[in-house]
Structures are given as structure tokens and as C-alpha cells.
């Protein structure tokens, strides 16, 4: 087999997987990252979040569907539709912001000012998401999961010195700059200077790992839907096999369609006013007021197993 190309020049800055022959191309690297990120054992907080499903069932709304399975599918669909429309623009803009930081590191002009500028943009996105999430239960769940992702990066994805021999020398400096960015953002979250919402942190994490935007968007919606299904299993609305069937047959087309529909949406913060950005067509929006009310009423349940 021919010698693998040195990836450190084509895609450094983010976590650069060393050029093993079997991992020789970018696509394989991304696939590997996808496999890691879709592990349901990652401490991303989805064990404790049902995004309103528990409240929905408890309030008797499942009775409006023909069967428990249908009720779950309907909930996943409505929840996913609204979440894609309201959160994905923030994933996209946070990802773009960090991707731009990464590409500037490659060109070796990533000075201190640029790191600060990137932090400022992320802060602005996070604050906008905070004031647009007008449901305290959703806000609580979102920041809990957001900070879990930042911790996941610093403790689970950053490269410890003991493993530095596995990296290409040239990429180490860029990698450490990226770590600095994420650490500083995490510090701001810890100091409560920014909320650290899930969609922003997801965009940051996936860009830092070198995952392409479209894959990050797709995986984000998939994880939301899968989280709902595992919540349904824990709530005993579904069996694990039934949940798997829904994941394969219903969630797959839904996630694909919602990604397609919402991947171009933006928050509007990164555009200038003369870019012709029309927020009524391309901006975030909430599309399910019923879901908002039920999610907001979560804490009114006499007994509950999730925290959202």
C-alpha cells in the first residue's frame, strides 16, 4: 500500500487523527468521529432529559394518537420539527465560527485577538439562544447538556501528553490552540458569564473535532430523536425492540427531511444587515406551542424520572 498522505497539512487544527493507512482519508476520519459521538454511553446528559415527553404522556396527550407507538412517533416528529427549526441555526453558526477559527490556525495567523473574537461570537450566539428559549425547563436541560459536551471535549477528546506520540508533530500546536479556545469557553460557562447551551456547544465540539457541518447537523437531530426514544423506553411506553424499529423506519426519514429543511437556517447574528438575511424565512423559530407548554409544565408532575 502506498504511503498515506500526511493529513496534518490538509486538515490540522482540529483533532488530527494520525494517518494510519486504514484512516487515510478524511471521510474515514469523520466516520470514526461519528461512531464515537453516537455512542449512547457518552455523558451528554440525555439520560436525564426527555424534552417534554414525560410531561406529554403524563398530561394525557398520548391518548390522542391511535396507539402508544403512534403517540411516540408523533411526539418525536413534532418535537424534532420544532427543535430543528429553533436549535439547528445555532448549531450551524457556532460550527461555522469555530471552523473559521480552525482554518485561520492553519494559515498561522491565529493570534490572541482572533481567539477572543471567536469567543465573543460564541458568547453572542449563546446569549441569543438563551433569550429565545423562553421555557425554564428547556433552558435548564440545555445548559446541563451543553457543559457536559465541553467537559467531554476536555476530558474525553483532548490528547493527553502520554498519547502525543500518536500525532503528527505539525498539528500539535494547532490542536493546543483549539483546546485553549474550548477551555476558555468552558471557563466562561463555569463562571456563568455565558449559559453554555447545547446547540452552541455541539457546534463548537463537532467543529473542533473536524466534523463537517452537514454531518454535525444530521447527527444532532438524530441524537435528539434517539434521546426521545430511549426516554420512551425508560417510561415504559415502548419496548427496546419497538424503539429500534421506530429509529430505523420512522426516525431515519424524519431526521433526513428535517436536516434537509433546516440546514440552511442561520441565526442572523453572523450576517451583516446588508446581506439580505430574512429572518422570517431563514431564521430560527418555534413551531410547536403545545410542546412548549407541556415541556414548561414538567416540574408540576407529582412524580417524575427525568429532569426535563
Amino acid at each position: 500500500m502506498a504511503r498515506a498522505p500526511d493529513l496534518s497539512f490538509t486538515e490540522p487544527a482540529r483533532l488530527s487523527i494520525s494517518p494510519l493507512p486504514a484512516m487515510a482519508n478524511k471521510d474515514d476520519t469523520e466516520t470514526y468521529i461519528l461512531l464515537l459521538l453516537s455512542d449512547s454511553n457518552l455523558p451528554t446528559g440525555s439520560f436525564v432529559a426527555s424534552a417534554g415527553l414525560e410531561s406529554h404522556v403524563k398530561h394525557g396527550f398520548a391518548s390522542l394518537s391511535a396507539s402508544p407507538v403512534q403517540a411516540t412517533v408523533d411526539f418525536v416528529r413534532d418535537s424534532l420539527g420544532s427543535y430543528a427549526k429553533s436549535a439547528l441555526p445555532f448549531v450551524s453558526d457556532a460550527h461555522r465560527t469555530v471552523e473559521r477559527f480552525a482554518s485561520c490556525l492553519e494559515q498561522e495567523d491565529g493570534g490572541e485577538g482572533f481567539l477572543q473574537d471567536t469567543l465573543d461570537k460564541l458568547t453572542e450566539l449563546d446569549e441569543l439562544y438563551q433569550v429565545m428559549t423562553l421555557n425554564h425547563v428547556a433552558r435548564r436541560a440545555s445548559v446541563a447538556q451543553g457543559v457536559a459536551l465541553l467537559t467531554l471535549y476536555s476530558r474525553g477528546f483532548s490528547r493527553p501528553p502520554t498519547l502525543s506520540a500518536f500525532s503528527a508533530k505539525e498539528s500539535r500546536a494547532d490542536e493546543s490552540q483549539m483546546s485553549r479556545l474550548l477551555n476558555q469557553f468552558k471557563l466562561k460557562v463555569r463562571r456563568e458569564e455565558v449559559p453554555g447551551h447545547l446547540p452552541i456547544c455541539w457546534g463548537v465540539l463537532t467543529a473542533a473535532l473536524g466534523l463537517k457541518l452537514e454531518r454535525a447537523q444530521y447527527l444532532y437531530l438524530f441524537l435528539h430523536a434517539r434521546g426521545l426514544l430511549s426516554a420512551a423506553v425508560r417510561l415504559n411506553d415502548l419496548g427496546p425492540y419497538g424503539a429500534q424499529q421506530i429509529l430505523l423506519h420512522a426516525v431515519r426519514p424524519l431526521v433526513a427531511a428535517e436536516t434537509e429543511r433546516c440546514k440552511i437556517l442561520r441565526t442572523g447574528l453572523l450576517q451583516g444587515s446588508d446581506d439580505g438575511f430574512d429572518d422570517t424565512l431563514s431564521g430560527p423559530a418555534n413551531t410547536w406551542p403545545l410542546g412548549e407548554i407541556l415541556a414548561g409544565r414538567h416540574d408540576l408532575q407529582h412524580s417524575r424520572i427525568f429532569n426535563s
Partner: peptide, 28 residues
């Protein structure tokens, strides 16, 4: 307090504080 409802109520509402300086709230 919500126990386990069989069917949806005639009216439901939610109340969430606006966190900025604890100055307001949103009711749906």
C-alpha cells in the same frame, strides 16, 4: 400537581421566568 391524566385538560398553561434580572415572565 399532575398525577396521571387520562385525557388532555380543557385548558393548560405554563409559566416561565425571564431570567434577565428576574424582571419578567412568559405565560403560555
Amino acid at each position: 400537581t399532575i398525577f396521571k391524566e387520562k385525557t388532555p385538560a380543557q385548558l393548560i398553561w405554563s409559566l416561565s421566568p425571564i431570567e434577565a434580572e428576574d424582571q419578567g415572565a412568559v405565560v403560555r
